[in-house]
Simulated assay, not measured.
Amino acid sequence: MKSLLLVVLLAAAATAAIVSQDVAEAPEGVVEYEEILYSDETELAEVEEAGSRSVEIESRRNLSVGTIGNSRLLANTQHIRGAVANTIIVQNITFNFASSIRIAAIRVTRVGASQNATPSIVSGGLNRNFVTIRITSARGRGYNYRIQIYGR
């Protein structure tokens, strides 16, 4: 009976946990996260207005820029966030690499069923050594994305 209770508690903890798996193949890479929750439309509008002055390259359900070619995989991460009632989740993920590395391709791919989240590039990007990717969820929804960064 105790083992069954333990298994149920572990399963509950595992499903409630926020999973963020970081596997950077380049030892010179650093990943930083910033997560913000918005329940007020005016707060989100102010952030989006400020972000519109940045380098937003593409704003769709998947994001794919650059060509892989002879590049190597610098970072392969998966970002999963559960839904929060009546809240929009905005997460900025910044990848920093050594100054000698240049990003050649960025792939942000939705995993599983669509929850209408939107990935976008807000700073850095191709031919730079850093990139900041913003994932914005739909109100009351979560997201599940895989981010792959290639470079030379």
Results as ranks from 00 to 15, higher is better:
V55I: 15
V55A: 10
V55Y: 06
E56G: 08
E56L: 13
E56N: 14
I57G: 12
I57D: 04
E58R: 10
E58V: 15
S59E: 14
S59L: 11
R60Y: 13
R61F: 07
R61Q: 05
N62Q: 13
L63V: 15
L63W: 00
S64C: 12
V65A: 09
V65G: 07
V65Q: 09
G66K: 08
G66W: 04
G66V: 15
T67V: 15
I68Q: 07
I68A: 03
I68E: 09
G69Q: 14
N70M: 13
S71E: 12
R72W: 08
R72E: 14
R72S: 15
L73M: 11
L74A: 00
L74G: 02
L74Y: 00
A75F: 02
A75I: 08
A75S: 12
N76G: 07
N76E: 12
T77Y: 04
T77A: 07
Q78T: 14
H79E: 07
H79A: 08
R81E: 00
G82T: 08
A83H: 10
A83E: 06
A83V: 10
V84D: 03
A85I: 14
A85Y: 14
N86F: 06
T87L: 03
T87M: 03
I88Y: 03
I88L: 06
I89L: 05
V90L: 13
N92Q: 07
I93E: 00
F95L: 04
F95W: 11
F95I: 03
N96R: 05
N96P: 04
F97C: 06
A98D: 15
A98P: 09
A98Q: 03
S99T: 12
S99R: 05
S99V: 11
S100E: 07
S100T: 09
I101D: 09
A104N: 15
A105T: 11
I106Q: 00
I106L: 05
R107V: 12
T109M: 15
R110T: 06
R110N: 09
V111L: 10
V111Q: 07
V111A: 06
V111M: 04
G112M: 04
A113Q: 11
A113K: 12
A113S: 07
S114K: 11
Q115E: 11
Q115I: 07
N116D: 15
N116W: 04
A117F: 01
A117S: 12
A117R: 02
T118K: 13
P119Y: 00
S120M: 13
S120H: 06
S120G: 12
S120L: 08
S120D: 09
S120K: 05
V122M: 02
S123C: 06
S123V: 10
S123L: 09
L126T: 11
